[in-house]
């Protein structure tokens, strides 16, 4: 709120403030962002015009996230969809000192060990990207279409538990949305309730 008020006081930033307040609404343009990955590379959403982009919020200390990594579910999704040309950006918005905060080299080591396959992992310790999209939980998934419109905002699947045994048989909203969107169909379930741990933003 403080940030938003500060922005409003500067006339030129009024529009920015409004785009933050109503940011990640399905059917509207996904907010533009610039973020740095674990290899120091800069990613801008607008660079990916023409491609589908997945944003996946993560916190590897969170048991809901662990459910999808320990089962291999998340890595499978990353591999399946990046091999089909989708850009998969994992985002870490844990603040320094909070659960899930990682340095670039720690995250790179983990990615290797976990056999994870996102396009990149964006480090967002200030929570800027998280707040821009209003990411609530880990996991929390957003999908952006090739024109830059947000087409999915919500959970990874329909089983809001920490049980690894719930992965099989769950309705995977992300795969369904991507299958539909990549074959030119509208997403049947574009908004669901994300479930998980709260994103560990700075206080």
């Amino acid at each position: 709120m403080r940030k938003r008020l500060a922005a409003i006081t500067v006339l030129g930033f009024t529009l920015v403030a409004f785009s933050i307040a109503w940011a990640a609404r399905v059917g509207e343009s996904a907010p533009e962002f610039t973020a740095t990955d674990t290899n120091g590379q800069i990613h801008k959403l607008s660079e990916y015009q023409g491609k589908f982009v997945v944003l996946e919020w993560t916190n590897r200390g969170c048991p809901y996230t662990q459910k999808h990594y320990n089962s291999g579910n998340m890595q499978r999704l990353q591999r399946d969809w990046t091999s089909r040309g989708v850009v998969w950006l994992t985002v870490v918005s844990s603040a320094p000192g909070k659960q899930g905060y990682v340095t670039a080299s720690e995250e790179n080591a983990y990615l290797k060990q976990a056999n994870a396959a996102p396009t990149a992992v964006l480090l967002d310790p200030a929570g800027t990207l998280g707040h821009l999209y209003d990411a609530k939980t880990t996991p929390h998934i957003f999908i952006i279409d090739p024109k830059g419109a947000l087409i999915y905002n919500g959970a990874i699947d329909d089983r809001p538990t920490t049980d690894v045994s719930d992965v099989n048989g769950a309705k995977n909203y992300v795969s369904i949305a991507l299958e539909e969107a990549t074959s030119g169909k509208p997403v049947s379930n574009p908004t669901t309730r994300p479930y998980g741990c709260s994103v560990k933003y700075a206080d």
């Binding site: 590897r60 200390g61 662990q66 990594y69 320990n70 899930g100 983990y110 060990q113 976990a114």
Partner: peptide, 10 residues
């Protein structure tokens, strides 16, 4: 192995 590492880091 991964789980143990997770727990240790967490």
């Amino acid at each position: 192995v991964r789980l143990t590492a997770c727990a240790m880091l967490a």
